[in-house]
């Protein structure tokens, strides 16, 4: 499925590293790590396992959004990227491949 999304939309699955990089543009590298770890803790997500399931990443993003201010603005962009990936993955999964026909 990742291959399908990448071949059609050239969109890679967001990872916690990519989200951290975006967050660092708002608050700097050090604070980004602190904010991310705090959001993981509040969401009950192991930061090392946050890449394993989109819903875990989304839970962390929701915590950042709840922080308000510029963290919420940053988190909204991340939410849309992850939502786009998730929705397209589902859409492409439901599209029959030539082998299914």
């Amino acid at each position: 499925m990742t291959d399908s999304i990448f071949s059609q939309y050239r969109l890679e699955r967001p990872s916690h590293e990519s989200l951290l990089e975006a967050l660092a543009r708002y608050v700097g590298d050090d604070e980004a790590g602190d904010e991310w770890n705090g959001a993981c803790q509040r969401a009950g997500v192991d930061r090392l396992l946050a890449d394993t399931a989109p819903e875990q990443l989304m839970a962390v993003i929701a915590e950042l959004e709840a922080s308000g201010g510029h963290l919420a603005t940053c988190a909204k962009g991340l939410r849309i990227r992850l939502m786009t990936y998730t929705v397209l993955a589902r859409k492409l999964e439901q599209t029959p491949t030539p082998a299914d026909r």
């Binding site: 969109l11 975006a22 543009r25 603005t73 940053c74 909204k76 962009g77 991340l78 939410r79 849309i80 990227r81 939502m83 786009t84 929705v87 397209l88 859409k91």
Partner: peptide, 24 residues
């Protein structure tokens, strides 16, 4: 935004674009 565009309001959107609420 810097990472995505957010659809604050829309008319006529459907499918995945409406569901995602924006795009990268």
């Amino acid at each position: 935004l810097d990472e995505a565009q957010h659809f604050a309001s829309s008319y006529g959107l459907g499918g995945w674009l409406e569901e995602a609420g924006g795009t990268p």
